[in-house]
Simulated scan of single mutants.
Amino acid sequence: METALDIAVACVSVIVVGFYTWSLRGHFSSPRMPAGMKVVSAAVTLTTLCFLYLVWSRQQPVAAQLVGLGLEIAAMALFWWAISASRKARLRFAFDPDKPDSLVTIGPYRLVRHPFYTSYIVFWTGWAIATWTSWAALPVLAFVIIYVVAAKGEESKFAATPLAAEYEAYRRRTGFLIPKLARA
């Protein structure tokens, strides 16, 4: 069972990273890759290699692998839901200096303003749990910081666009990376 779970975790993880890589050319549309996005891409590559090593070099509890795999699959589902909802928008790479020219408020965007970043964080958290080592928390923390900084930067750019008022109303009613709890 453990070898089968190692294979499942490794395969699902590589597939999800492959989907994320595809989105750089197949979904997001920036004229060039910003330096910050190059750093993210390098971090993804290094973390992928590190986590693959951890999956195959250590023995993990079955429960950790199952929970991690479940989170990875949930992240993949959220990612594709966000792709579907934002297909017609011209979303840009993280850290792109250009101002946004569209606002997506359907699909997962009804719940969170940054479903792609939420997807990435859930994925890396799942894979870290599946490796079952405390060292895996370090890259997850780094990714959380990177994605929060990217999201905050994207949000600040809306203020200087014709979408500013609409975005502010959207921001008040929608969660940042996790859904807002209903107010009583």
Rank of each mutant, 00 (worst) to 15 (best):
F176E: 05
L163R: 00
V144F: 05
L163N: 03
A137K: 02
V140R: 03
Y167E: 06
E168A: 15
A160I: 11
L138S: 11
Y147C: 03
W132M: 09
R172Q: 15
Y170D: 10
T161D: 04
L163M: 06
G175V: 09
S156F: 09
A136L: 00
L138E: 11
Y170I: 06
V148Q: 04
A150C: 07
F143T: 04
E154S: 01
E168M: 14
S156M: 12
I145F: 13
F158H: 01
A159F: 08
A136D: 04
L141W: 01
A165T: 14
A160S: 15
R173P: 09
A136Q: 07
R173N: 13
A142Y: 06
T133K: 05
L163F: 07
E166G: 12
A142E: 10
T133A: 04
A165N: 07
I146R: 02
G153A: 05
R171L: 12
P139H: 04
T161S: 09
T174Q: 06
A164N: 13
A151T: 02
T133W: 08
L138F: 10
I178C: 10
I146W: 11
F176A: 09
A142N: 01
V148A: 08
A142S: 11
Y147A: 01
E155V: 12
E166A: 14
S134A: 15
T133G: 11
L141Q: 03
P139L: 09
T131L: 00
G153R: 01
Y167F: 12
P139V: 03
L177G: 10
A169V: 14
I146T: 15
K152Y: 14
I145S: 07
A169N: 08
A169W: 11
G153F: 00
I146G: 06
S156K: 15
P139A: 00
E168H: 14
S134W: 15
P179W: 00
A169I: 10
F143D: 07
A160M: 11
T161P: 10
W135I: 12
E154Q: 03
E166Y: 07
Y147S: 03
A169K: 14
A160L: 13
V144E: 02
P179T: 12
A150R: 08
T174D: 10
A142R: 02
P139K: 01
K180G: 10
Y147Q: 06
G153V: 06
Y167K: 05
T133D: 15
E168F: 10
A160V: 09
F143V: 02
Y147E: 08
W132C: 13
F176C: 13
V149R: 14
A130T: 04
P139N: 03
A165I: 15
V144Y: 06
A150K: 06
V144N: 02
F176L: 07
P179G: 13
Y170L: 08
F176M: 06
G175S: 05
V144D: 08
R172T: 15
G175Y: 00
P139S: 05
E154V: 03
A130K: 00
T131V: 06
K152C: 15
P162R: 05
A164R: 09
A151E: 13
L177H: 02
K180F: 04
E166M: 13
A159W: 01
K152N: 14
A136S: 12
K152E: 14
I145C: 12
R173L: 12
E155K: 07
F158C: 04
R171C: 03
L163V: 02
K152H: 15
W135G: 13
A169P: 02
A142M: 09
